[in-house]
Design a protein around this nucleic acid. Sequence first.
DNA 1: TTGACATGGTTTCATTTGTAACTAATTTAA
DNA 2: TTAAATTAGTTACAAATGAAACCATGTCAA
Lengths: 156, 156
Amino acid sequence: MNTENLKSDTDAEFDLPRFFPYLVRVYYRAVSESVSAVYASLYNLTVSEWRTMAVLGPYCALSASEIVERSSMDKVNVSRAIKGLRNAGFLKRDIDGDDRRRAVLRLTESGIDVFHSLTPKVSEVEQQLLEGLSEKERQTLIYLMEKVQQNAERLK
Amino acid sequence: MNTENLKSDTDAEFDLPRFFPYLVRVYYRAVSESVSAVYASLYNLTVSEWRTMAVLGPYCALSASEIVERSSMDKVNVSRAIKGLRNAGFLKRDIDGDDRRRAVLRLTESGIDVFHSLTPKVSEVEQQLLEGLSEKERQTLIYLMEKVQQNAERLK
DNA sequence: TTGACATGGTTTCATTTGTAACTAATTTAA
DNA sequence: TTAAATTAGTTACAAATGAAACCATGTCAA
């Protein structure tokens, strides 16, 4: 009898394709890739740049740290995204008169054009991702993800 | 009247904190971090190394490309993970006699020890992540994630 | 055979990302 | 009023990741 290929009870408990965090990773990558394909192929934006744009939108004027708060990115990535967007001419910066450490950021005309060109396209991808799910299923999915996320944050 | 802060109908449609792919990313990062904390802090393993270990487990002897198939990693990352695990003494490699391009990989004794030390801990984290979700909710979550994932793969 | 193609795996290079240290401006408290 | 601590943001360095080129071996077809 070949005991080599028999799994003991303890080992049998671990099975990567059913391991929840593994499933989450595969899921995330599929989702993430389908969205980044849009802004990366059209305007060569990175995730951080796209998100910075998305937080600002056409009207907002925010400081870098306000972008940090609203985007769940860290300040280094925001700083880099700002640099990239400024180089591309999509974002402008004005130093705050009162607090000269702060700089107020807003999209330029051409940044706003890019924003208006991208949002319908990424929203369309969003809809395609959720295709086949009822409104209730969509809500359930988001609700359950948030619950898991809260558990994860509690673990830290 | 201050029109600056009024959003037109088209702009109002885009709101990052409700953008589904954004929610997925935040969710993924929370989950991912709580698991990698375990294997990274205990044995300094990278994600790829941990997954390679998890695919092999204590009994399997697989080639690098078989690991690729079962782990949804690409061959470059698998190759690097193998290198890392070999350097750490957790994995050994035997060149196949018939096809000398292939190498059969398996965990060493100490690799198996690490595996047996990690699996209960990561499984525990998995349970904590899913805490407060009923069995049915867990199944629903996984089912819905898979559905979205399939949509994403169709988009490529 | 032997030349073309396929396969298994590694290396190289460029980009991304994270951590920590840093500068500059501002606030606080002695 | 000035030294210490905070805050805003950047830079520097190291690790991780992806794409493409690259060997080495093996297969297949003329």
